[in-house]
Amino acid sequence: MDVSSPSPAPSNENQTDQPPLLTYVPIRGYGRKAAAIVLAAILLSFLVSIAGNDNFGWPVVGQYLFDDRIMSGLFLTSWLTVVTMVIGVVLGTILAIMAMSTNNVISFVANTYLWFFRGTPVLVQLIFWYNLAALFPDLSIGIPFTSLWVSIDTNVAITPVMAAILGLGLNEGAYMSEIIRSGLMSVDSGQRQAAKSLGMTNGKSLWRIVIPQAMPIIIPPTGNQTIGMLKTSSLVSVIALSDLLYSAQTIYSRNFQTIPLLIVACIWYLTATSILTAIQSRIERHYGRSLLQTDAPVRWRLFRSS
């Protein structure tokens, strides 16, 4: 071999003179292993006792898991969560930008909104929207001082579904606004200055530069809010909407199989939560890609921009 090395290779005699190299032994961690075994044993016996306990009524759970009423309740809960979160995010973004405005009136309006909607129970807000007709029998929209007005009976416009969307969505907007504001403020002001100096307008720099970099801060708490909304939406039962939990309640009020039907509801809540968690980690990976110590793969995009 003609590979030249910068320093001469140590000769054999030299090596024998040196003390032998140390062999490293990693820490054993017997305590941790013992704890893991004990925990696994406890978990297993717990599961066995649940599975073997007739009082849980597993056959009843199986019987109602795909019941039509449960399915339609699950459907309502799912789309209500999606719609109210979309409203929450859009409204929250607008409120966050308003709250950061240098105009005192604009930021005051945003902060008052937050104060009111975070400061009153969402249950009360739902009932309030449901009973809006008692306060405003007619809803009118139009141009002031002209005859261009459209009027509609409040009881027609505010259906239970509409009341649920308004109540949950407007409330969510207040919470999302704080989450989005913290994200926007986490982006260094130099980013906006650089965008400005390149001739970008405020809107463009917000959309292209600031918001994408705020996303890693915004996503985890937004995931929390979405999972929270999945369960908060069960409050709509007070305004006579049959969501997942209410559907289960309706069934067990007739057949008195309370526990099995609540288990059915929980299975579906857990399934939905698992799906949402998977979506969240997918989105997090997308926005966190610039934080990895690797080059970008060619055109790694969550949504293709044309």
Binding site: G190, Q191, A194, K196, S197, L198, M200, K204, S290
Partner: peptide, 30 residues
């Protein structure tokens, strides 16, 4: 501003974009 370029002390590169995306951002968007 589009024809008056500026280079900052702290670079202010767009952290969520690759080097190439940083350079083409303003030409394509502005």
């Amino acid at each position: 501003r589009a024809r008056i370029a500026m280079v900052f002390q702290n670079f202010n590169l767009f952290g969520h974009m690759t080097v190439l995306e940083n350079v083409i951002e303003a030409p394509t968007q502005v």
